[in-house]
C-alpha cells in the first residue's frame, strides 16, 4: 500500500534517520535533484548506510537514482542495491529502451553482488512529453516495472506551459498515465503538490488525483502526508459499499442465485474485485470490520 510517497534529500542526515516517523507509506531517498553534483558521492554512501542500519519497518523504501543520461546512476545502483530498497526510481523514463538499459544494468549488478535476480523493482518517473506518450510501453517494458509516478514540474517545462495549482495543464498527462498503468496492471502515483503552505489546495489536488484513479500521491513536505493518506484511504461510504457487495455475493452463493444485484445495479467481477481491494486496504489500515 502506497498512499503517500515522501521525497527526502539523500544528503540530509536529520531527515533520513527520521524517515519512518514522518507519516509516509513510502519514503523516497533522493539522490537526484535534491543532491548537488559535488555531493553525489557522499549522498549515496549516506543513503546506503541508513538503508543498512536504520529500521524502516512499516515504511516502504525507494531510492531515486540519477537518470541514465548522467555519469552517476550506475554508481548509485552499485551502492544501494545490496541494501534492498523496495524500488529503484528511474527519473526521466522516456521510452521502453530506457527501461531496457536500466533493467540490463540492474541484472548485471544483481549477478555481480550475488543477490536475487529481479529482486528490485522499478518505479518509472514520467516527466517528459515523450514519457507520457509512451507510458504504456514503459509500464510493460519489464516485469520489474511496478509503478509509474508523474513528475509534473519537469513535464510542464517540457510542454512549454506554466505549472499551476489548478493543474489544468496536466489533466491529459494524469489521465494518460492512469490509463497506461491500469492497462499494464501496475500502480500509478501522482505528482507532488509544491506549495508547502497551502493545505487546502493540497487536499483538493489529492482529491483530483484520487478521482482520476491514482493509487497514491508523492509529496515533498511531510506536512502534506496526513491529507494524502486520508484522501487515499477508503472512505467509510466506500468501505460500507464494499462490505455490502461482499455480503450480497455471499448471500447469492448461499441461495444459489446466479446474477447478483445491489441497489438495482448488477454486481460484476470488476466491482467484486474492487470491493475486495477496498476491504484489504481497510484491514491493512486497521479500519476494517
Amino acid at each position: 500500500m502506497r498512499r503517500s510517497l515522501l521525497f527526502i534529500p539523500g544528503n540530509a542526515p536529520a531527515l533520513l534517520i527520521n524517515g519512518n516517523y514522518l507519516g509516509a507509506d513510502s519514503i523516497i531517498f533522493d539522490l537526484e535533484d535534491a543532491v548537488s553534483p559535488d555531493e553525489k558521492d557522499a549522498a549515496r554512501i549516506l543513503v546506503r548506510n541508513t538503508l543498512r542500519h536504520m529500521d524502516y519497518r512499516g515504511t516502504g523504501t525507494i531510492v531515486r537514482i540519477n537518470s541514465i543520461d548522467t555519469g552517476y546512476w550506475k554508481a548509485d545502483v552499485d551502492e544501494v542495491l545490496k541494501h534492498a530498497p523496495d524500488l529503484i526510481m528511474l527519473p526521466k523514463a522516456g521510452c521502453k529502451e530506457d527501461i531496457d538499459v536500466a533493467e540490463a544494468y540492474l541484472s548485471e549488478a544483481e549477478e555481480r553482488l550475488g543477490i536475487e535476480q529481479g529482486g528490485v523493482g522499478i518505479i518509472a518517473l514520467i516527466e517528459t512529453a515523450q514519457g507520457i506518450e509512451r507510458a504504456y510501453d514503459i509500464a510493460g517494458a519489464s516485469a520489474r516495472v511496478k509503478a509509474l509516478l508523474l513528475g509534473a514540474e519537469d513535464l510542464t517545462a517540457d510542454l512549454k506551459c506554466a505549472r499551476t495549482k489548478e493543474g489544468r495543464e496536466i489533466e491529459y498527462a494524469r489521465a494518460r498515465l492512469v490509463t497506461a498503468a491500469r492497462a499494464a496492471g501496475i500502480d500509478v502515483y501522482d505528482t507532488p503538490f509544491t506549495d508547502v503552505e497551502d493545505d487546502e489546495g493540497m487536499r483538493l489536488d489529492a482529491m483530483v488525483a484520487k478521482a482520476l484513479g491514482f493509487d497514491g500521491k508523492s509529496a515533498i513536505s511531510p506536512r502534506h502526508l496526513a491529507a494524502i493518506n486520508e484522501v487515499f484511504s477508503p472512505s467509510l461510504t466506500e468501505l460500507d459499499y464494499a462490505y455490502e457487495v461482499m455480503d450480497a455475493i455471499r448471500k447469492a452463493a448461499e441461495q444459489g442465485t446466479g446474477v447478483v444485484a445491489l441497489r438495482g445495479k448488477m454486481i460484476d467481477a470488476p466491482i467484486v474485485s474492487r470491493a475486495k481491494q477496498t476491504i484489504a486496504m481497510a484491514e491493512e489500515l486497521g479500519i476494517g470490520r
Binding site: 533520513l16 534517520i17 558521492d41 557522499a42 554512501i45 549516506l46 548506510n49 541508513t50 543498512r52
Partner: peptide, 17 residues
C-alpha cells in the same frame, strides 16, 4: 550528534575523496 551510520558514511566519503 551524528548517529554511527552517519559518521561512518562521512568518514568513508572523505577517505574516498
Amino acid at each position: 550528534g551524528a548517529l554511527d551510520c552517519v559518521i561512518k558514511a562521512r568518514v568513508e566519503a572523505a577517505v574516498r575523496r
